[in-house]
Design a protein around this nucleic acid. Structure first.
Lengths: 236, 236
DNA sequence: AGAAACTGTGTCCCTCGGACACTTATATTT
DNA sequence: AAATATAAGTGTCCGAGGGACACAGTTTCT
């Protein structure tokens, strides 16, 4: 019934029974994932082909299929390895903990922004990804929020991390200051501005702020404020 | 300098000079986009190939290239058509307006959840997409927020819409209640639960809420609360 | 030693996006 | 009315990518 999921679950969660007989493997999942991640980091997810990953490892394309059931599963593995396990929390209130957590997650996503492409759509989460969720939820223990609410809050923050990551990536690698979203959006505003008066006004007034960091902090603080309001209301 | 963008900009924003000579076209951009959208709606974006779109229109694959420079541009067009122009705002305070706006946007994304796949990564927004942004920003006019902040707020809400859309889609089309995210996540918890104590606890306590709608409202209200807090603080 | 299990390779096939030449239809020009 | 330029849809071809499969070489167990 969950037939197709079983393969990726096995790949991400194990077990990985190691063979008793036969030649010893020249590769392992870790190395394969890393190879894919390196390609994705430098050239984007679209450039990750079985060919290129194999070439980087000095093997043939088909050799990879001894380790990985297919490309989709390889990408899922890449994501979990790239995200990595969540670092331990420092002590502090829920707000400090969540804020630190969000910043750390944002840093990871910014470094591997291709992970966005690989995490749209239904999928199975790996252990690393779950460890991040775990820490966010546990940071909210004792706040009076229900289990569902703690989960929802974590999901809300993840959504913001993803949103800003996407924006940051759209703005380009920052070494190309003119060909950025701002300039192309500005171009459109110059041509069709009369159709978007509020947007035009907002963009003019926003022209000289460092967009990304600003947007990140703004959203993060609004979410945390919103959570604080709820928690306080409950605790009154 | 912006060489590659120019094609999709022309496609989305015009102008579309109509030819004076030659046979009259059997198709138009609207019909092509609709055909692609129908395929994507029913079978997902991955099943949208030039072949299938053309077949649905009763033409050859190559005929489409008379209207559209390439597949990427076709998808961009599909997105803008599928999203459609933002409906007019009803009267009300900024909060009511934004809430209505977010619900309307969510409805659109839920209906065309493949749009998520097509809107990761750098891209040029079309007129319809911009019209949504316009209304969100204009709803915040007169709140005392700066232009950048109004934009950031809109982006924050879009992020939440996208996040929940993704979750809703991961949970399946709701006619398959057992093979859902909940059950597969539950399966993992049953096997590796000891590694995720807070998550396990939260899931147990969340077991019998209707996840999606709950998560949607929760996040939306938190964001709006956070915005309200800021606006009030500024206005005091 | 032989069998069993496993690894990496080479070959093949399908699908997809796209280039290009070609035929046919329309509107302008002579 | 005839010639011509322009544009629409088709058919053919190519390269890249994912993956199936049979095969040869290697290691361990009996």
């Amino acid at each position: 019934m969950d037939g197709e999921h079983t393969e990726v679950v096995r790949l991400l969660w194990g077990p990985h029974p190691k063979p008793a007989r036969g030649p010893r493997p020249t590769l392992d999942l870790e190395r394969i994932a890393r190879a894919g991640i390196e390609i994705a980091d430098s050239d984007g997810l679209a450039d990750v082909s079985m060919q290129r990953v194999a070439a980087r490892l000095g093997v043939t394309k088909m050799a990879l299929y001894r380790y990985v059931p297919g490309k989709a599963e390889l990408v899922a593995l890449m994501v979990d390895v790239a995200i990595g396990p969540c670092p331990e929390a420092r002590r502090g209130g829920w707000r400090e903990q969540l804020e630190e957590w969000a910043r750390q997650l944002f840093a990871v996503f910014r470094q591997h922004s291709w992970a966005l492409d690989a995490t749209v759509g239904p999928r199975v989460m790996g252990p690393a990804e779950l460890s991040w969720l775990e820490r966010a939820v546990s940071a909210l223990d004792g706040t009076g929020l229900s289990g569902a609410e703690r989960m929802d809050a974590a999901v809300l923050l993840v959504g913001h991390v993803r949103g800003i990551t996407q924006q940051a990536r759209a703005a380009g690698p920052a070494d190309d200051p003119e060909a950025q979203l701002g300039s192309i959006l500005g171009e459109l505003m110059r041509t069709h501005g009369e159709r978007f008066p509020a947007l035009t006004a907002a963009l003019v007034s926003a022209a000289r702020s460092d967009g990304q960091d600003q947007a990140w902090d703004f959203g993060l603080q609004r979410i945390l404020d919103g959570l604080a309001a709820l928690i306080d209301r409950r605790a009154h």
